[in-house]
């Protein structure tokens, strides 16, 4: 409401009018917030894998390892981004049923969802999903297992670097491990509304 706009801005201006001096924006280097010791002299991908494991996720670097994990978890029916499927399909056996069209009326059918990620952050074990490269927001969220696929070159070292590269995509989400809650007596439970298993598949 435009009246409310004028009212609020008017009150803000009169609230601040008596201040003779206003707090300045401090100059600082975002490096202060980076866990540099953790990253020093290490392969960012190794740090990424460690950090993702730290939040109960898994980083894989080859397709057969992914297929093996899906088979062992008995997650045989899922969705895969059609752009990724040609590369992955040869590794999936006939026991799998993989759809390349996501149907939101059957959310409970998909045990896994394989989608393209825009990259990762080594410092935190985070995968980055951007609207323009994610085939379906829901396919990355509703299945029990989410597999985020990105290439080694797309891995950022630290959080400030990833912030600087947010770019102009209207919706970016950083996912750090599986969905979780501790609302009931502080006990950690994974897989609340989103995936209970978060896998990052980092390919060359």
């Amino acid at each position: 409401m435009s009246d409310d706009r004028e009212a609020i801005l008017g009150r803000v201006r009169s609230a601040l009018a008596p201040l003779t001096e206003r707090a300045a924006l401090p100059a600082y280097d975002t490096e202060i917030a980076v866990l540099r010791q953790l990253l020093a002299n290490r392969d960012p991908l190794a740090v990424f894998a460690d950090r993702l494991r730290g939040v109960n996720g898994t980083a894989l670097t080859d397709i057969p390892a992914l297929v093996k994990q899906l088979r062992e978890g008995k997650w045989l029916h899922g969705y895969c981004d059609p752009a990724l499927w040609p590369r992955l399909a040869p590794h999936f056996g006939p026991e799998f049923e993989v759809e390349t069209v996501y149907d939101r009326t059957r959310v409970d059918d998909y045990a896994f969802g394989i989608t393209r990620a825009a990259g990762g952050i080594a410092e935190l074990g985070t995968v980055i999903l951007k609207d323009r490269s994610t085939s379906h927001r829901l396919a990355a969220l509703t299945p029990w297992v989410h597999v985020a696929v990105f290439s080694r070159a797309e891995l950022f070292v630290d959080l400030p670097q990833a912030i600087a590269a947010l770019g102009d995509d209207p919706n970016i989400i950083w996912c750090t491990g599986p969905s979780k809650t501790a609302d009931v007596e502080g006990i950690l439970i994974e897989g609340v509304h989103g995936p209970g298993v978060q896998i990052a598949l980092v390919l060359d």
Binding site: V55, D131, D168, P170, N171, I173, T176, P178
Partner: peptide, 17 residues
Amino acid sequence: DLTVYTEFISGPKSATQ
């Protein structure tokens, strides 16, 4: 270290989404 989901939203969804 970071919340599980950190979302940066600058408008309605992208046209391709």
